[in-house]
């Protein structure tokens, strides 16, 4: 029995183990789940080590150290020591007395990421949305486009009203908010159907694995 066949059998049995959850929680599922979680956690540790720690920290600082020893020059890669410093602070959580120092790292991560994302969100979710919605309400000789443009503008406008939190949804304002909710729900419905179709293709892929690769019932 070749390695491939053993792999297919293991894959098929574990697939059935996960599928068995559809019936109810059972030891077969628990075993598959524990194996999946354990392997993935270990795998992520290795990925993190080789894709982040080694190339970002170790390799860069090795280069800098080599440059310092060989040419007496301090290059910019030493900046990675800052990341290393914050990493060590995170590990200090293991020492209860000074574990509070890890909050510095957390503050740095959360603050910088949120700050960096601020302008990105403002551009993609704000200004680009406005630019994409600025459309002529009446396009001469093209009724379909005119209707489409009106729907886009009205939908965006009423959707914004729904997400306005400083005023209660009552009266005409509430009516406009309800129109906004209708637009949202129609959009969600379309997205739901679209995503369900893509999930079906995932299921078909798994079935194909079971019936074609494993059982050889489909050729």
């Amino acid at each position: 029995m070749s390695g491939d066949i053993i792999g297919i059998w293991i894959g098929a049995i574990l697939t059935l183990g996960i599928f068995s959850f559809l019936y109810k929680d059972n030891p077969f599922y628990k075993f598959s789940e524990a194996l999946f979680v354990g392997i993935s956690a270990g795998y992520w540790f290795v990925v993190t080590f080789w894709q982040y720690f080694v190339p970002k920290f170790w390799d860069n600082l090795s280069l800098s150290f080599h440059e310092l020893v060989a040419n007496g020059r301090i290059d910019y890669h030493w900046i990675y020591l800052v990341g290393g410093f914050f990493g060590v602070l995170m590990l200090l959580r293991l020492v209860p007395k000074i574990g509070w120092l890890s909050r510095w790292s957390l503050a740095f991560i959360v603050g910088t990421t949120a700050g960096l994302q601020f302008t990105r969100y403002l551009e993609s979710n704000g200004i680009r949305q406005v630019v994409g919605t600025i459309k002529p309400l009446v396009v001469g000789g093209n009724l379909g486009t005119s209707i489409g443009n009106i729907i886009i503008v009205v939908g965006t406008f009423t959707g914004l009203i729904y997400f306005f939190f400083s005023k209660e949804h009552k009266g005409a304002f509430g009516g406009a908010a309800r129109v906004g909710v209708w637009f949202l729900m129609i959009n969600f419905g379309a997205m739901f159907g679209y995503t369900v179709m893509s999930r079906m293709s995932l299921l078909i892929g798994r079935m194909d694995y079971l019936f074609s690769d494993w059982l050889k019932l489909i050729k």
């Binding site: 704000g126 600025i134 459309k135 002529p136 503008v153 997400f163």
Partner: peptide
């Protein structure tokens, strides 16, 4: 308040686009 500004921009932009007032529409371009 940002949303209020966006809604105002939408109305102005839609009217400007309908009447081909490109100098207003271009203010929003990135």
């Amino acid at each position: 308040w940002g949303k209020i500004l966006i809604m105002i921009s939408l109305i102005i932009g839609a009217i400007a686009a309908s009447f081909h007032l490109d100098f207003i529409v271009n203010l929003f371009r990135i």
